[in-house]
Amino acid sequence: MLTTTLIAGLVLGGTYALVAMGLTIQYGIARTMNLAYGETIIAAAFAAYLVHNSLGISPILGLVLIAPAGFAFGWLVYRLLLRPLVRRSKGGAALEIDSILATFGLLFVIQGVMQVGFGGNYISYSYMNFGVDVLGASVAANRLLALVLALAIGGGLYLLLTHTRWGTALRAVAVAPASAPLVGIDADRAARFGFALGGALAACGGVVISMYQTFTASSGVIFTMKALIVVIMGGVGNLAGALSAGLILGLVETFVATYVSPGLTLAAVYLIFLAILLWRPSGLFGKARR
């Protein structure tokens, strides 16, 4: 029973981590609190649905198309919508407020476009919905895929960011955007790249989630909320933080649902959120950020 719960918790946490990673990169590197993040996820989910239902292509193959599209979309949004804000902002606080307002507007634009294109109905298809035996627990293959993808992306990007020159430049911009140009780093380009990367990660998350979760054009907000909790809990801009915070949330929800009551999962999530923030105000890995 305990192993079953543990594995179920990790798998659920994998989804949360996957969803949050793009947001943490966008917030960390581009210093943009992207409130339209969830809408990007849903847009990718719609794209996966179209690829699967109209073209009959597996959503995993669809990733080859959809993830670069997410990247391009992030790139364009930064280039057209956010760069003017970055340019005119003097300090960090003004940019944060402006970007929140701008992406809040973007949220409604994307949502509106999806409403017009797909209507308000529930969309759902299933792909890879069969059980896989993991240490005696039956786990849905598509959810397992989400966990594996979260671990791979999280681990891979973490290594890239910490062990390559390119990653060091990105981190430099994240820590001191004003000073980075002094050592020859193009801060604007790095921020744009970080934002676009976040868009690609959101698209990956959307594709995988669409395999097992029912969504509507207006369900993006739910993902933004969950991702925000994970990001803040893990430490803004930290991939390892997002990964571990996501897994912790999944475990807490599953353990509370099994041993206490499913009605208290939300309460437990916010309780642990509060506890972690009291203990480490900048998030689990907040201090470790360099």
Partner: peptide, 9 residues
């Protein structure tokens, strides 16, 4: 709620 595994078990 999206994960019903605990309740189903």
């Amino acid at each position: 709620t999206t994960d019903f595994t605990p309740m189903i078990n």
